[in-house]
Design a protein around this nucleic acid. Structure first.
Lengths: 181, 181
DNA sequence: ATACAATATATCAGTTTGATATATTTGTCA
DNA sequence: TGACAAATATATCAAACTGATATATTGTAT
């Protein structure tokens, strides 16, 4: 079997929902999947070309007017490859939180710096939670569809975690106040 | 100012706590920081050498018996560089959860696959939570120290989030049962 | 008309991972 | 005591991925 990186499956997964251009894939990653996965153009376009050479996706010219546009759709072989990966156990779940890093090393700058980072984090979380709650509400009306059920579960995950982040922010600030007494 | 990547500050941060070898740095990342940050030898050793050339850390031969050992300690210049970074706002907090990815694309394999991934995730979270609670308990006795206070806050973050992950696992399984009726 | 935002593809240097190589010391079981 | 595995320790490299940038067209608002 050919080389397979994680990116392959992200693209195959998205194309298993519907045919898309590289640009549309990027947008979907930046909206729907942003809470648990990301990718850059520098990996999207080359991987799309590689998947086509392997016969896992099919290119189709979808240019209109003068706008160049290449639509990709998944093949049966691509679907088989995706299904195989989906059945395998997860290799790695990973958090990369710069906020936690700056907090952990924060003794160099004191509790004042820590408080600032926590507050900024809190604001960001509030924003994300607002978006996620909107997603969940909108999704409510599509829950007879299987694809949307899976989507719904991931949105619920996002809501749960951001709510717990906000709780932590509150408790951490209280704890710092306690220490400052 | 010279080139600066995130890895620079991770190493400077760890060395600001105490002098260490590359191997010890890796161990600390795999234990204490594993819940929010990771790094591989392939970035640790080269970065350590680069930081030495820049005068941010100092190399010291700490070989004993026949065992080669290089201990690194942070310089004042290195501390200044670290502090500067700590004051800057966070650029990126990122979750990369393969579990969520497989769940999101799971309509290809059906709810049975989703349930399996959720269950495996649940088991892993229970394990992590156990470790984190041990950390928190042990930390309790060192909380007069500033470094440990910052450490404590990050452990609390880990506990909060893993608890919410477990709640989500439970609710997601209930939801799936509901859908299966 | 003109400028700005959005759409669209593509590439590349720099960063990081994951695997592997190499070698020594320490612990453990028989 | 000897043998074997596990832990300690440094280092390198191909492959993967990011973040930035280049290029060009279309739609929108002023």
């Amino acid at each position: 079997m050919a080389n397979t990186k994680k990116m392959d499956y992200v693209l195959l997964g998205l194309l298993s929902h519907e045919p898309m251009t590289g640009y549309e894939i990027k947008k979907r990653l930046d909206t729907t999947l942003r809470f648990f996965w990301g990718a850059s153009y520098g990996s999207i376009y080359p991987t799309l070309n590689q998947l086509e050479k392997e016969g896992k996706v099919i290119k189709e010219d979808a240019s209109s007017n003068g706008r160049e546009k290449i639509s990709y759709s998944i093949t049966e072989y691509g679907k088989d490859s995706l299904k195989e990966w989906l059945k395998k156990p997860v290799e790695k779940d990973e958090l990369r939180y710069e906020t936690l890093l700056k907090l952990f090393f924060g003794n160099e700058t004191g509790m004042e710096g820590a408080k600032e980072h926590i507050e900024r984090f809190e604001e960001k979380c509030k924003g994300e939670l607002l978006i996620l709650n909107m997603f969940a509400e909108n999704l409510g009306q599509y829950l007879q569809d299987d694809t949307h059920k899976h989507y719904y579960l991931t949105v619920k995950f996002g809501i749960k975690t951001y709510e717990s982040y906000l709780e932590w922010c509150h408790e951490a600030k209280e704890q710092i106040k306690e220490w400052e007494k």
